[in-house]
Simulated scan of single mutants.
Amino acid sequence: MTVLICIPCLMTGGTEVQTLNLVQALIAGGHRVVTVCYFENCEDMVSRFQNAGCEVVCLSPDGIRIDGWRGILFLYKGLRSVLKQYKPDVAHVQYMAPGAIPILLLRLLGMRQILTTAHTAADIYPSLKLVHFIQRHCVRAFTCITELAERSFFGSSQLYDENYPLKKRNHFTIYNALPTSLPIAQKRSTVNCPMTIGVVSRLESIKGMDLVVPAFAKVKAAHPEVRLLVVGDGSLRRQMEQQVQAAGIIDSVEFVGSQPQEVLAQYYDRIDILLMPSRSEGFGLTAIEGMARGCVVVAARVGGLPEVVCDGEVGLLHRKEDAEDMAYKIGQLIGSHAELSRIRANALLYVSRFSIERYLALIVNLYSKL
């Protein structure tokens, strides 16, 4: 059947990477896939969707976002044109703002088989009345990326599996999956010399990047040999570079900028301890990417991270916005190679639940029941 994937933007974030996984799973299942992007888009991500075998329609070629009633009219006309041209059997809406409006417009335009995926928890919404209305009356399935997020929306949760009996209206959790470009390492028993702490992230406040250098400076004062690798770019890069200069640790920090998804494995392989001090995180794709390559994750106790990074077993959690606690947790790992090795071994086994093969099987099974 023909599946229409609806998404506000096609940039380089974790949501787009996960949506690409969805596209690849559907194509592997024998479906024709069309992705419609409403607003912002970049050539690289559009090309990656097309190379996967997906047809891409950008409603706004220049990527300009339109708000208010003009935006609703713009979406209505764009979706109507796409439905008329491609005649999809199913629409799968990626539920980021705006997410509710396209669902309502698709129903108005006659779509009956609609699925939606929420990429955040409910705490970003001032009210859940519209979400509950959509789940009960508009979509066949409302899927979440963590059980924590599902409970925040609906008060209960259930992991989807092949035995799930699909009803007229459903909500359940399907975990995000590792990108195909990041295979799970078979083994990683050695520690880099010198030991390397790293981040792979957009360098933005929401990712807690302003906390990284202060925490690293505290660790380095006790362990002079450690190094920091910063993979990514963003509005805080200049501030982070200034923090490095002020702390007098220029020789111990390396900024490599943004890197293509296809080469990230080689950077993860250089990192022993991966930091995720996010202020908000729906799932934490970087966490499972790092675990797949043998990094030990030290992450903030926010959003979906406590569910993905089981504290003390496959990683360590620190208090939100607390550089001191982050530095303490890093120090625990540096001070005990045996503990670091134990957690790393656990993570390499644990991360298989997020494999692309498992995700593909669940998506194919779900769509077979529609």
Rank of each mutant, 00 (worst) to 15 (best):
V131D: 09
T146N: 08
D62Y: 01
E241C: 05
F39A: 06
R136S: 15
I273P: 05
A347D: 11
R70A: 15
G304N: 11
V90R: 06
R270G: 01
V226K: 07
C54S: 13
A300T: 12
A185Y: 04
G13A: 13
R270Y: 05
Y125C: 06
L340N: 08
A121H: 06
G315Q: 12
P260W: 13
Q113W: 07
G198W: 12
D251W: 00
V17P: 09
E289R: 06
I363H: 02
L362Q: 11
M326P: 07
A265T: 07
A347M: 15
Q242L: 14
E241V: 00
L370P: 05
A97I: 14
L317N: 04
I101T: 15
G294Y: 05
G312A: 11
R169E: 15
Q94I: 02
G13C: 13
S47V: 00
K167E: 15
L83H: 02
E289Q: 15
S152G: 12
L166A: 13
V93C: 15
R80C: 03
T19E: 09
K168L: 14
L10V: 06
R48Y: 03
E357R: 12
N41F: 03
T19M: 10
P88R: 06
F142W: 10
I145T: 05
A323H: 07
L108C: 12
V296Y: 09
T2V: 13
D210N: 10
V308N: 09
S278V: 04
V33T: 02
L349M: 06
I206T: 13
R279F: 12
A25E: 01
K87Q: 15
F74L: 02
I330C: 10
V213A: 03
A149Q: 03
C295A: 14
G304K: 11
D62F: 03
K320P: 08
P224G: 07
A121V: 00
L148Q: 13
C6Y: 03
V230Q: 09
F133Q: 01
D44G: 00
E162F: 10
R301I: 01
Q239M: 02
H318A: 02
I271Y: 08
Q259Y: 05
S336D: 15
G282F: 04
A177C: 05
T117P: 04
Q186D: 12
Q239T: 02
T143H: 10
N346G: 08
